[in-house]
């Protein structure tokens, strides 16, 4: 990897203050501990880990929504100081403004960018078309299916042209068929736009199918346990998911993850000080 990866996590550590049931401060909870990871320009990296290992915490840090307790996060060699339009976030629960139409939701990020109104509408239309929703510009979120809502959210994050797309389990709430078609579309969009994508998931299949590399996290406190290069023959006309190589990668990721999931499960039942679990 070159001297300046697009995204570099360097010894990132995040702790949260913890209060017990009587409100007295206890020892802080370490969500992330010494996370090191580089993501190259135009790379598609997937990040898997057991639930509660700090994936969303990591995404908050990358998005500039919180500052790490320790370590550095560098974007193109510069430290991340706060939120910015060089990164686009996509959340599992879509986060669309319910009082805005699909078109106006996509335009929302363009308002942040300060684009004049006329350009906004044109650009928003273009990106709605990119995710296959040109006919739904005037629909409100509650008139759209879950898959369509997530398409709108993806269009919103792409429209302001960020360098990096940060996605937190974006397809976890969708049914299997919708998820697969959105995975294919995301891949196609990624190939077309050349964005850097960091895609968080707890699905092994999804991680292997989408990622050029799969980073596996340990249970809490989260660390990068290993990074697996995925090299699937994607030019073939058949579905790479039926490739025997896919099964091998799948199995390797599963092996890496297996112990961590067991660990995470055990600590879930262990008496831990009460903490605000955001799920």
């Amino acid at each position: 990897m070159s001297e300046h990866p697009r995204l570099r996590l360097d010894g990132v550590r995040q702790t949260f203050p913890v209060r017990d049931s009587r409100g007295r401060p206890g020892p802080p909870l370490t969500a992330l501990d010494d996370v090191n990871l580089d993501v190259g320009a135009s790379e598609f990296l997937t990040l898997v880990g057991p639930s509660g290992c700090g994936k969303s915490t990591l995404l908050d840090l990358l998005g500039g929504l919180a500052r790490p307790t320790g370590g550095r996060i560098l974007l193109d060699g510069r430290p991340v100081e706060g939120p910015g339009l060089d990164r686009g976030l996509v959340f599992q629960q879509y986060a669309l403004l319910p009082w805005r139409t699909a078109l106006d939701n996509v335009a929302f990020g363009l308002e942040a960018k300060g684009l004049p109104r006329r350009l906004r509408a044109a650009r928003a239309r273009e990106y709605l078309a990119l995710v296959g929703l040109e006919g739904f510009a005037d629909r409100y979120p509650h008139e759209l299916s879950g898959g369509m809502r997530q398409r709108v959210a993806i269009a919103r994050s792409l429209a302001f042209d960020p360098e990096v797309l940060l996605m937190d389990e974006p397809f976890a709430a969708l049914d299997a068929q919708t998820r697969e078609s959105l995975q294919d579309e995301l891949r196609a969009i990624w190939l077309r736009t050349g964005k850097t994508v960091l895609f968080i998931t707890h699905g092994i299949d999804e991680a292997v199918y989408l990622g050029q590399r799969v980073a596996v996290m340990t249970s809490r406190p989260g660390r990068i346990k290993s990074v697996i290069d995925v090299d699937l023959d994607r030019d073939a006309s058949r579905d790479p998911r039926s490739d025997p190589a896919f099964a091998r990668y799948r199995n390797r990721v599963w092996q890496e993850l297996h112990d961590e999931v067991a660990l995470a499960r055990r600590s879930e039942f262990a008496p831990v000080p009460s903490e605000a679990d955001r799920g």
């Binding site: 998005g63 500039g64 929504l65 706060g82 939120p83 910015g84 339009l85 990164r87 976030l89 959340f91 629960q93 986060a95 403004l97 009082w99 929302f108 990020g109 308002e111 942040a112 302001f160």
Partner: peptide, 25 residues
């Protein structure tokens, strides 16, 4: 919805714009 606030903050909106575009509606 805190997620809406989070999404708006991630887009770089300041407190005033956040109030006008998210909280108020």
């Amino acid at each position: 919805d805190p997620l809406l606030v989070k999404a708006a903050v991630s887009l770089g909106f300041g407190p005033l714009a956040l109030f006008r575009k998210v909280v108020l509606p």
